[in-house]
Every structure is written in C-alpha cells, then in structure tokens.
Design a binder for these strands. Structure first.
Length: 197
DNA sequence: CAAGTGATTAGC
DNA sequence: CTAATCACTTGC
C-alpha cells in the first residue's frame, strides 16, 4: 500500500523520520520495472530552526524551493561534485522540514543495482545516501516529484518495534553548532546496510 | 586516511 | 563576477 500525503503532511518531522524505517522505497525505471529497498536509516532536518538545514532561518533559493511545498514531494540535490541525495519534503506548506534517506536494504531489482554500482560487494550497493541514489538511478530530474505519482513512492512493508530503532547524532553536520548534537538520525539495530555504526 | 568533484551560494 | 563550501565515496 502506497503511503499517502497524510503520512508526510504531519507536523512532527522527527516522527516521520522514525516511522519511515521499515517502509519500502520504490522507483519505477524507464521500462516500468520496479527497483525497491527497505528504508533502514534516515535523518530529519527541521527547516527554519535547524542550522544544519538548507532552509535555516528562512533561506529560500532555487535549489531548496521545493522544500517549502506541502509534504509528500521529493527534494534531490547534488553534493561534493559527485553525488545526489534523496529527501522527502514533510509537514505543511511553507514549513521546509525534510527527511533525508541515508540507507536502504535492496529488495527488488538487485541486478539493476549491481549494474549501476559497478563491481561492488552487495552490502555496499545502497549503504549510504549517495550510493542509494546511484543504485536507484535517482538524479536531479526527480527533484519536485510527487510521492503519489508513478515514478517514485513509498509503500508499507515491515513494522519494527521501538526497541529495534535507535537514534543518534547526524552525519557530516559538524558546522551546525548546537544542532550538530541533536539526535535526529534514526536507524534499525543490527541492519547490515546502515551506513555507520 | 585524504583527494576529488562541480553545482550552488554568498559575498564582494 | 569570483571564491569557498559541501546531508560523500573510494581507493591509496
């Protein structure tokens, strides 16, 4: 079952980030084949109040414009001259909160992922935000897509109990002062595809 | 462990 | 216009 806008329009982006664990990320490729993976690691970026967020204190640019839209849209940006990062826009219109998808566990279309990632042990296929975008074929053309469309969406898949979910500091946001310490990264315990222990 | 990579942005 | 920066990955 596809998740609807209600799931993403909720105000509490931290809950959205932890609720996404165990859900299935699905991308329909050029030929209509499904490539999918179970979400095992996420990070929340709380829009205007969060020094680590692109939209901190209302910064609004061509790049992050979509994060001000209503929850349920896709925000993709390019980083380090090499990689894309996949985010889901959350909350209501004009609240630029997002959830970054940091890692998934491959489910469908593993052969396609292997081809796209090159010769790589399977556990490295999707175990990081840049890696999973390569494996799923996600690029800038996905920016602004609606998660109720037929190109990319999220489905119910597995449920995990509270004690199988851990939270901690986010990765790569050391510049964000007090917000660098916030435990806004969520992952599943004992999952091989989580990017960092 | 460190270099690489180029779009994006903020700062003149 | 120009320079600095960066939600990372890979191969030394």
């Amino acid at each position: 079952m596809k998740l609807t806008h209600d799931f993403f329009v909720r105000k509490d982006t931290l809950h959205i980030a932890s609720d996404l664990l165990g859900k299935l990320l699905v991308v329909s490729n050029e030929t209509g084949e499904r490539v999918s993976g179970m979400i095992v690691e996420t990070e929340a970026y709380l829009g205007e109040i969060d020094k680590a967020a692109h939209s901190f204190s209302g910064r609004r640019t061509a790049r992050n414009e979509i994060t001000y839209a209503e929850g349920g849209h896709v925000y993709v940006f390019f980083i380090y001259g090499l990689y894309y990062q996949l985010n889901f826009v959350c909350s209501h219109i004009d609240d630029p909160s997002v959830v970054l998808i940091r890692a998934v566990e491959p489910v469908e279309g593993i052969e396609i992922m292997r081809t796209r990632r090159g010769k790589m042990p399977d556990k490295n296929l999707t175990s990081g935000p840049g890696k999973l975008c390569i494996a799923f074929g996600i690029d800038k053309s996905f920016n602004g897509e609606d998660l109720l469309g037929d190109r990319i969406w999220v489905e119910e898949y597995k449920n995990f109990s509270r004690d199988e979910i851990v939270s901690g500091k986010r990765i790569g946001v050391g510049y964000a002062e007090e917000f660098a310490e916030m435990p806004w990264r969520f992952w599943l315990t004992n999952n091989l595809f989580v990017s960092k222990k």
